[in-house]
Amino acid sequence: MMLQIKDLAVSTNGQNILKNINLEIDKGETVVLFGPNGCGKTTLLMSIMGLGGYKIEKGKIIFKGKDITNIPVYERVKLGIGIMFQRPPTVNGVTVRQLVKLCGDEDLDVGEIAGTLRANSFLDRSVNDGFSGGEIKRSELLQLIAQEPDLVLLDEPESGVDVENIALIGKAINKLLDKGVMKYSNGLSLKEHHTRRYRPGLIITHTGYILDYVPADRGIVFMNGHVVCGGNPFEILNIIRDKGFEECKKCDKKHKRQIQ
């Protein structure tokens, strides 16, 4: 198992957000996390990343066999966790190019990876300063591609993005996760590529649009800080699109009764 989350409970600002989360993600697996606003999806990602303001009340996070529950953020990054923020802050005076070099290494040809993301236009602007929704996401993906993480956490990659940008972003995510139909020059078939796939992904989505571009392997539904459902992501998405989260609430109630 690449990532194991055991009995995890997390609070923020004195409020219990996550209660008793159990989740495992295997290598090469792309998992989509569905759930209504405020159900704790982002809290889970922030807890895996180890960001401040999120207090682990109980449970464990294990990555690549190592207990990372209490280690600092940058050490998690060194171990291979990377995150795409939904609303990253502006960092004045630091250009996207400089930040991408900090994520990868000094010799990195930023222009080359920027080309595929059509990011050249904002490479020399301050990070996120007056960026459009699409530019923010492309800048985030650029940093992740430079970082080459072993586990990719994506927080609402499609939010605030127009249709044209979603396709571009979907393609970049597929590249990160060795998914979809890509051009490879090493002579291996796509099937062979997909079986060698190593890097797992955990994607948060509110709308599910990103699934039109990224073929996920498994879906999970979050309600009130715990997992209420798991299964085929496309099937789950179809239900959510048709019924909203009403159907999920039914299972949530049953789940609560079981606990009581």
């Binding site: 960001l51 600092p72 953020v73 940058y74 990054v77 990253p88 960092v91 900090l102």
Partner: peptide, 11 residues
């Protein structure tokens, strides 16, 4: 901002 950069691997 500090945390954002830490999430990119900086102390």
């Amino acid at each position: 901002e500090i945390e954002y950069l830490m999430a990119r691997g900086l102390s």
